[in-house]
Design a protein around this nucleic acid. Sequence first.
RNA 1: GGAGGGGUACCCAAGCGGCCAACGGGGCCUGGCUGUAAACCAGGUGGCACUGCCUUCGGGGGUUCGAAUCCCUCCCCCUCCA
Length: 407
Amino acid sequence: MHGMPDPKEQLERIRRRTEAIIPEEELLHKLERSCRTGEPLRVKLGIDPTAPDIHLGFSVVLQKLRDFQDMGHVAVLIVGDFTARIGDPSGRKTTRPMLSPEEIERNLQTYKEQIFRILDPDPAKVEIRHNSEWLASMTFEGVLELSSRYTVARMLERDDFHQRFHEGVPITIREFLYPLAQAYDSVAVRADVELGGTDQRFNLLVGREIQERYGQEPQVAVLLPLLVGTDGVKKMSKSEGNYVGITEPPQEMFGKLMSIPDSLIEQYVRLLTDLDWEALNKEHPLTQKKRMAFEIVKRYHGEEAAARAQEEFERVFSKRERPTDVPRVEIPSAKLEDGSLWIVELLEAARLVQSRSEARRLIQQGAVELDGQRVESVEARVAVRDGMLLKVGKKRFAEIVLRGDGA
RNA sequence: GGAGGGGUACCCAAGCGGCCAACGGGGCCUGGCUGUAAACCAGGUGGCACUGCCUUCGGGGGUUCGAAUCCCUCCCCCUCCA
């Protein structure tokens, strides 16, 4: 393995945007040895097969894994198909849905398509494993073996377990098994490093100890900051609906990024772009946000698409003009009476509302516009013309296309 | 094994025979102000051509003129003691 950068330089690069490296000296040793022997480090990252959409929060971790790859190391992706059955108690969320092997495989395909927009697909630098490979076949004896290598007291050190224990909130034995199973993954793939968000700190540290108990050199935990979601409060996650997916269309991405609270701009710029925050910080927040959104869209869709997304955003929201791409909705002319239609029915036919009651409410609230003209009355009948623009709220648009009877 | 507390709309949570399509908060939607930010103000947040009707309060059955509210039964969750 030649062309591998100097270990100190590597460490420097790994440190960027990283929350913690535990312990840092060990990582340096591993890097030095790797450089000497030409043996790449095995860098483990667990992926959750229940949520195949990759969002910007996870991209921070993936980007770091990419850094490792670029320095010549191997990404070892662990599909947590078996651990998904246990359900990670981190953050004490309710249990996740059980997935069939087929669903998991389907998700993995989606995952791969997305993951390689960030990772290097070079087969020499990626290894994808399912943890059912070694966990599903583990005997009860194996489980005893594994579980005898960790103590209840150590388990209870974990913040959420600790809290639950003291509040009298039940903790099942099964939940104790989760960190152990994840830790065993590290043994199975002989991980040198494991990546994760800061919420994974405990799990990754258990991995270290378990590896040691199985006679392996412990992995180094590299923790990355958790990105706050577009709501500005909770960490970005699919289930909270506060995420930006890396495969979302440019327009959507740009819009979502513009809607984050100002207080998040710095974090997004630092974690998701290579922009110089110190310089950017002198600008107006709106400018900062646009630059940030532009950079991110550019990363996933290219410069041209990013520029178009920005123009479009400015046209629709700043200048309140008509978007370039408005969904077209066919209205059979048979529905019309003397060329006109009840506004509520029109909204329904255009699928801009979910029910007529909703349509009525929105009209009453002044949210409905026809060709830029606010609809004042719920009872209104409107003359429908081909190419008419229907608008509900700030972002729901539809263009009416009249369809003749004969067609 | 014993004792007790619960299951209400997207979430939390009131209501405990009619005034309940169900208080309040969060979230979300809409309007205003704006920079599609935040903050703030106002309204909305089952369905239906709608001064009314229909479907909702874990499932099923019953009492009653009338039930989210009372009774029976089933399912599920939780706490404490052993």
